[in-house]
């Protein structure tokens, strides 16, 4: 009687494994999954003290929804492996725990196989390397070429003012231009500004006076990258200390109608501006 009950349970476990496996495959077809019931309504009714703005909130929600797909896919796949393991394992005290461990290992080994594949792909594109030049991995190929060129232009004792809110470009720029003094001014460049306006406004800033000074326009750099189809080296971690610089605000970088546009490139003028200019002494 007990043996037959166990056999039935094993069959049920195998059927559950099949159902979970199919569900795991189905989930990957989705663009996103909703969060906890009622959570979105709660967030809408009680906004976070640190507002992301409408655009930022929408991007965040979309990102969360997509990540939930990956999480649920892995959870269902792991549980499917665990159900198969439970059906096949002998009756022992730690049977359920062993099934969970094997399910977890199945999910982990699946990720390992994917990782090997992605590493191979990135190695082919130059973004993965054990060698001594990782700039393509840091910045993407087209941006890496641009930054290498800038290193020959900008002397190591110069000061580099960086304007624009495309902070996903700030890290690669700072990395490539080390050990030059990088002064980040996380302020939007007003839409439609010309190269001369950017240079004139930057020249009034006090940072790095007495040294050769250059200004990097991240909005223009983003426009060039978008035109070149460059790799998206975006960095999704917002900084806690990204308040606009007071001096830059005084210089006119934050103008009425200026659009902090950290992801897209909607400023038509940016495409025509040079991304790097030397400032007059």
């Amino acid at each position: 009687m007990r043996a037959s009950a166990d056999a039935i349970l094993r069959v049920v476990a195998l059927l559950a494994a099949c159902a979970l496996g199919f569900a795991a495959l189905d989930v990957t077809e989705l663009d996103g999954l909703p969060g906890f019931p009622g959570l979105d309504a709660w967030v809408a009714a009680h906004p976070d003290p640190r507002d992301l703005g409408e655009q930022g909130l929408a991007a965040h929600a979309a990102e969360r929804a997509a990540l939930r797909v990956a999480d649920v896919h892995m959870l269902l796949a792991g549980l499917s492996f665990a159900a198969v393991a439970w059906a096949l394992l002998p009756r022992r005290p730690l049977r359920a725990c062993a099934a969970l461990a094997l399910g977890s290992a199945g999910a982990g080994l699946g990720t390992t196989a994917v990782s090997v594949h992605v590493q191979q792909e990135r190695a082919a594109s130059g973004a993965w390397t054990l060698g001594d030049d990782a700039l393509v991995g840091v910045a993407g190929r087209s941006l890496a070429d641009t930054l290498r060129g800038w290193r020959t232009t900008i002397p190591e004792d110069a000061t580099v003012l960086v304007v624009g809110t495309q902070d996903w470009l700030l890290n690669p720029v700072a990395w490539a231009l080390f050990p030059r003094r990088i002064v980040p001014l996380v302020v939007p460049v007003p839409s439609g500004w010309s190269a001369e306006q950017v240079a004139d406004a930057a020249a009034t800033l006090p940072h790095g006076e007495g040294t050769r000074r250059f200004v990097v326009d991240l909005a223009a750099l983003a426009a060039r990258e978008a035109a070149a189809g460059g790799a998206d080296a975006r960095d999704d971690e917002p900084r806690a200390d990204d308040a606009p610089d007071g001096d830059a605000r005084d210089a006119g970088f934050v103008a009425i109608g200026a659009d902090g546009d950290p992801r897209g490139v909607r400023d038509a003028g940016a495409a025509t501006r040079p991304a790097l200019q030397e400032l007059p002494r």
Binding site: L75, G78, G103, S104
Partner: peptide, 10 residues
């Protein structure tokens, strides 16, 4: 599970 697998449940 894409980060911790089933380890929390285990």
């Amino acid at each position: 599970a894409s980060v911790f697998g089933l380890l929390p449940l285990l």
